[in-house]
């Protein structure tokens, strides 16, 4: 783990880090990844799932339904003529 990598990862995650933060995160993540490298000992695993228990074929019928009124959902948002305001695009 080096500072350049931390900078790039931070950029991907939309985080701006101070020089001190970069310094300390580089050290922490380096130690942590060093510890993670024990996983390299395990080469012959293949089975995996995205949940620890089986979650299979849970489907919903195509029935439209709205529970919470839109005004309530938009209550704390910054809106303009029903649109949600966002930042500049270019």
């Amino acid at each position: 783990m080096d500072k350049e990598t931390v900078r790039r990862v931070a950029m991907l995650a939309r985080l701006e880090l101070s020089e001190e933060e970069i310094e300390s995160f580089t050290k922490d993540l380096g130690e942590i990844l060093e510890h993670f490298s024990m996983l390299d000992e395990l080469q012959d695993l293949d089975d995996y799932g995205f949940n620890p228990v089986e979650v299979i074929d849970v489907l919903r019928d195509d029935e439209p339904h709205q529970e919470i009124p839109a005004e309530e959902l938009l209550r704390d948002m910054d809106t303009y003529e029903d649109y949600v305001r966002g930042p500049r695009l270019s």
Binding site: R14, L15, E16, D76, M77, D78, V84, R85, G86, P87, R88, L89, S90
Partner: peptide, 20 residues
């Protein structure tokens, strides 16, 4: 944008806005 802490300036480019 939608909930929680807001940025000061929506005039920022979205990448800068989200980042800040």
């Amino acid at each position: 944008m939608r909930y929680g802490a807001r940025g000061k300036d929506l005039g920022l480019h979205f990448d800068r806005y989200f980042t800040s």
